[in-house]
């Protein structure tokens, strides 16, 4: 019973955190901070996939979304400007 309540709470909290991280990824003007926000969103998304009982997708999302995409974004930012141009 306690475990079911915990899982229900996690099912509500994790999507809210995903939306908050996505909002910060758009809102922040420092592009490295925005890339870290995208990484946090991917990590929370992999947690959401795991608690929805899809561990295959969770492993792929944690490997590609949270690590390799962040590395590629930060390499691209290093080669260009750090601040976003309006």
């Amino acid at each position: 019973m306690v475990v079911d309540t915990m899982i229900n709470i996690i099912h509500i909290v994790v999507p809210i955190l995903i939306v908050v991280a996505s909002f910060y990824a758009i809102y922040l003007k420092d592009l490295i901070a925005a890339a870290i926000a995208v990484s946090a969103m991917s990590l929370l998304l992999s947690l959401e996939f795991y608690i929805l009982q899809a561990p295959d997708v969770a492993i792929a999302e944690a490997g590609i979304g949270a690590c390799l995409t962040t590395a590629i974004l930060i390499i691209s930012i290093r080669a260009t400007n750090r601040e976003e141009e309006v």
Binding site: D56, I59, A60, I64
Partner: peptide
């Protein structure tokens, strides 16, 4: 177990 070539390769 869960996973496969693509997931392990990504890790």
């Amino acid at each position: 177990t869960p996973g496969g070539g693509f997931q392990g390769g990504a890790v």
